[in-house]
Simulated assay, not measured.
Amino acid sequence: MKDAKALGIIQNAVSDKIFPQIAHADSAKMAWELLYAEYHGGEHVRSVKLQNLICEFEYTRMRDNESLSDYLTRLNELINQMKTFGEVLSNERQVQKVLISLSKKYDPICLVIENTKTLETVEFQEVIAILKSQEQRLEMHSVDTVEKAFASFTVNSKGQNKNASKSGSSKS
């Protein structure tokens, strides 16, 4: 009974990505050993995995059709995986990575941040907050422009544009 409870706790504690690795475990000990082998393993295995994560971190870029939140989530998952293998990135390195890897539409705000903040001292969360406010601003300006364009037009019961009849035009 205790083993089943411990196995349940381990299974609930791991993320959805890791769960399939231990789903077939019959005991808590077996699940623990599988996790230990995967994430602790030998020094050589850990080193290779860390090198792969560092490489992936270096080449990670925001896709043009990707939202800022999705990109930051993806980047944070990568940073957390690197921490798991012993690589701790400085705040400055994380800030630099975000600023150089965003899509082109964020270039103006990145330039402002780089020119007004000291990258060595600015907090990562402060940069994220600035970028998210910029994203909200961009979304505010792109909200259904067609709807805004026709917002000033009203149509009467005869199907005529009231604004057009005031100006002497009969087009609707």
Score class of each variant (00 low, 15 high):
D107T: 12
D3V: 10
H24F: 02
C55G: 14
S47Q: 13
E120C: 08
E92W: 05
V146N: 12
S169Y: 08
T60K: 13
S172W: 06
V14I: 11
E77V: 00
K5Y: 07
Y106P: 02
M62N: 07
Q51C: 09
A151W: 10
K132F: 04
R46E: 11
S157Y: 13
N115R: 11
D26H: 06
H141K: 10
Q94G: 05
I109N: 05
L111H: 11
S169K: 15
T145V: 14
E56K: 15
D70F: 01
Q160T: 14
A149G: 03
S172N: 13
V48G: 03
G41D: 04
N80L: 07
V98H: 02
L7F: 01
S15G: 10
S142Y: 00
A164E: 11
V14Q: 03
L89F: 07
L7I: 01
G41H: 04
K132T: 12
E147H: 11
V98K: 01
I54Y: 05
C55H: 14
G86V: 12
I22M: 06
S165R: 15
K97W: 04
V95H: 05
S142T: 13
K49F: 00
T154A: 07
L78G: 06
D26G: 12
A25F: 01
P108W: 03
A23K: 11
I109G: 03
E126S: 15
Q96R: 15
A25I: 04
V95K: 06
Q160H: 12
Y39G: 01
K29S: 10
W32L: 10
F19L: 15
V122H: 04
T60D: 03
N52Y: 07
S169L: 11
S170R: 13
T84V: 05
N91T: 11
L7E: 03
L99M: 01
M62L: 07
S133D: 12
E43C: 06
Q51M: 12
I100H: 00
R93T: 14
R61W: 06
T60H: 06
T121Q: 12
T84W: 00
K171L: 10
A23Q: 09
R137D: 00
S133M: 02
E114T: 00
G86Y: 04
K105C: 10
A37F: 03
G86D: 12
A23Y: 08
K17L: 00
P20G: 10
T118E: 15
R63V: 00
D3A: 05
V112H: 02
K104H: 14
A37C: 00
S90W: 06
D64S: 08
A31M: 08
V127T: 04
A151S: 15
S170L: 10
N91R: 08
K117C: 15
N12I: 05
F150R: 09
P20A: 05
D70Y: 03
